[in-house]
């Protein structure tokens, strides 16, 4: 009787094993999120212990705040471009290094290196590369193109952030794609070859459909990481010039930790969360797999 109670089929084992993680999630995810949601309905400030419930005033203020609206637009451009570049380039690299080529392991390691560079090193490194007389502009000149004022012009600043973020994000996408590619049965390609399908046709008809679940993971992962990322904008451009590269996450940071307005910053953070959730839901629908 006692042995049965401790037996591996007892349902309470599941609860016992998930409980520690659930406790961690509640303490470090759900509780802070709920607290932020509460703060967004108050006038909480780091400089004033007294706080008052003000309803949706912070959200109404956000709807009129031109800096916030500008940050939304910048975030849309920054996230859209970064994800497009990272996903396409990541897939191309994954397909390439999935081939049986000599020294494949070395190539994989080299391509993955940007992902393991410490986050704070990335913006400092790219600051030097994007110097008006730096390597990037020298390369542009060598190709007969005009140099770009990367960090101190409204167009260049967002472009620079996209390049620097994609440089780090692409290898991460690549690894996820690679795992997806390796799970596709080789027989499918062999059968397609026998049927006379070329490389492009095989990619369109086998690789892309079979990668659908992986694409979903990559999209959600890339959106979350890019929307939340503020270190690059903070260090590389400081959100400038004239707020041209202020992203939503940087706006939240500046409002909360430089402006001390935690209630207002929490409201902006909640909007950011809703945007991520909305994009995730859209992605789930777009990449839905029929069982």
């Amino acid at each position: 009787m006692r042995r049965r109670w401790l037996g591996p089929t007892q349902p309470w084992w599941g609860a016992a094993f998930t409980a520690p993680v659930l406790v961690l999630l509640v303490c470090f995810k759900f509780w802070p999120m709920s607290y932020a949601a509460w703060l967004s309905l108050t006038n909480a400030s780091l400089t004033d212990r007294a706080r008052r419930f003000i309803g949706v005033s912070n959200y109404v203020r956000l709807s009129h705040d031109t800096t916030f609206i500008g940050a939304l637009e910048t975030t849309a451009r920054y996230v859209g471009a970064t994800i497009a570049v990272s996903m396409v380039l990541g897939l191309a690299l994954a397909v390439l290094i999935n081939q049986k080529v000599p020294a494949r392991g070395v190539f994989r390691t080299l391509l993955f290196l940007p992902a393991v560079v410490p986050l704070i090193v990335v913006p400092i490194l790219w600051q030097f590369l994007f110097h008006p007389y730096g390597l990037v502009n020298n390369a542009l000149k060598a190709l007969g193109l005009h140099p770009v004022n990367w960090l101190l012009s409204p167009q260049g600043a967002v472009g620079a952030l996209v390049v620097a973020t994609a440089w780090r994000l692409t290898p991460l996408c690549m690894v996820i794609y690679l795992a997806g590619l390796q799970s596709i049965p080789g027989e499918l390609y062999e059968a397609a070859k026998v049927d006379g399908a070329g490389a492009v046709r095989r990619f369109q008809s086998i690789t892309l459909p079979m990668l659908k679940p992986t694409l979903l993971v990559v999209v959600v992962f890339a959106i979350t990481l890019t929307v939340q990322n503020f270190v690059l904008a903070l260090v590389m451009t400081g959100g400038g010039p004239d707020n041209a590269s202020t992203t939503l996450s940087l706006f939240v940071y500046q409002t909360g930790f430089l402006g001390f307005q935690m209630g207002y910053a929490s409201a902006a953070a909640l909007v950011m969360l809703l945007i991520i959730v909305a994009f995730t839901v859209v992605s789930l629908r777009a990449f839905r797999i029929e069982e």
Binding site: P154, G238, D242, Q254, L258, G259
Partner: peptide, 18 residues
């Protein structure tokens, strides 16, 4: 001060860079 500094920063950048 954080907001004042940011506003001055953007004002100066408007004049100097734009």
């Amino acid at each position: 001060w954080g907001q004042l500094q940011a506003a001055i920063q953007n004002g100066v950048q408007k004049v100097v860079f734009k």
